[in-house]
Amino acid sequence: MKITRQKHAKKNMGFYKYNFGFREPFQVLLDGTFCQAALRHKIQIREQLPGYLAGTTQLCTTRCVLKELESLGKELYGAKLIAQRFQVRNCSHFKNPVSGSVCLLSMIEGGNPHHYFIATQDQSLATKVKKKVGVPLLFIIQNTMVLDKPSMKSLTLAQAVQTNQLVPEHQKLNIELLKEEQGLVKTSEPKKRKRKRSSGPNPLSCLKKKKKAQETLQPSAAKKKRNKKRRKRKPEAIVEAAQ
């Protein structure tokens, strides 16, 4: 049975870690009923809970829970001593304390932004916690602590996320951070304008012009050579005629 409970706890913890961003240290809000049940069944919450959740935990309560335990007298004196050892979280009922169940419900309003676990034996409070999204519920049964399976609302939201209908905010941030670490984020840099440089004459066109000039000079040079030859021949012809 212990191995089976550990498997269920590991599976449920994986669900809350992946879908709702729960991370160590896990913050567990306890009320007087849970402390009383732990005292009755001789459960060492501080020693046993981290092993069950497979991670470090921060046990905490509220002033309203402590006030409620004080008002209940000697019957819950032992539970009050246990609760006093935990960290006290600030609630909004400093001037006008309310019951422990009402106070714990107020701590998980707005989608449970602080990722609290609720540990209670109060059935009415447990029923209301199950109607919330992303709030793990702990209780004691058969001398052991048990992490309840996720509520239907939590399962529905997780299914919507998996079908790409919704993306949780914590996952968006993680995706952006991973992209930046891997260098996948492209930063838009202004494109530098190329300066237009004054282009000189095309060398090929210059070569063509030189060729044309050489062609025009060639006939004039040939004519000069012919005239020289003719001039040389004239005296020879006169000498021959005189002889």
Results as ranks from 00 to 15, higher is better:
residue 62 T to P: 00
residue 204 L to Y: 13
residue 186 K to R: 11
residue 38 A to L: 12
residue 98 V to W: 02
residue 13 M to P: 08
residue 154 S to G: 10
residue 55 G to D: 02
residue 72 L to V: 08
residue 1 M to S: 05
residue 163 T to F: 06
residue 43 I to Y: 12
residue 35 C to L: 01
residue 59 L to W: 00
residue 191 K to A: 14
residue 43 I to V: 06
residue 174 N to Q: 13
residue 181 E to C: 02
residue 63 R to Q: 04
residue 11 K to M: 09
residue 205 S to C: 10
residue 8 H to M: 13
residue 143 N to G: 11
residue 106 S to Q: 11
residue 26 F to T: 04
residue 168 P to Y: 00
residue 30 L to I: 14
residue 108 I to N: 04
residue 197 R to G: 11
residue 116 Y to V: 01
residue 125 L to Y: 03
residue 227 N to C: 05
residue 115 H to M: 06
residue 162 Q to N: 06
residue 41 H to T: 05
residue 3 I to L: 15
residue 91 C to T: 12
residue 143 N to R: 08
residue 222 A to V: 07
residue 200 G to K: 04
residue 78 G to F: 12
residue 4 T to C: 09
residue 217 L to M: 15
residue 130 K to Y: 09
residue 118 I to Q: 01
residue 134 G to T: 01
residue 190 P to D: 01
residue 69 L to A: 11
residue 37 A to S: 06
residue 135 V to Q: 04
residue 30 L to T: 14
residue 194 K to Y: 04
residue 214 Q to S: 05
residue 214 Q to V: 05
residue 65 V to T: 10
residue 225 K to P: 06
residue 136 P to F: 01
residue 187 T to K: 09
residue 153 K to Q: 07
residue 167 V to S: 05
residue 95 K to L: 14
residue 3 I to E: 14
residue 86 F to E: 07
residue 219 P to D: 04
residue 168 P to K: 00
residue 232 K to H: 13
residue 10 K to T: 13
residue 203 P to F: 08
residue 116 Y to S: 07
residue 59 L to I: 12
residue 133 V to I: 15
residue 168 P to R: 00
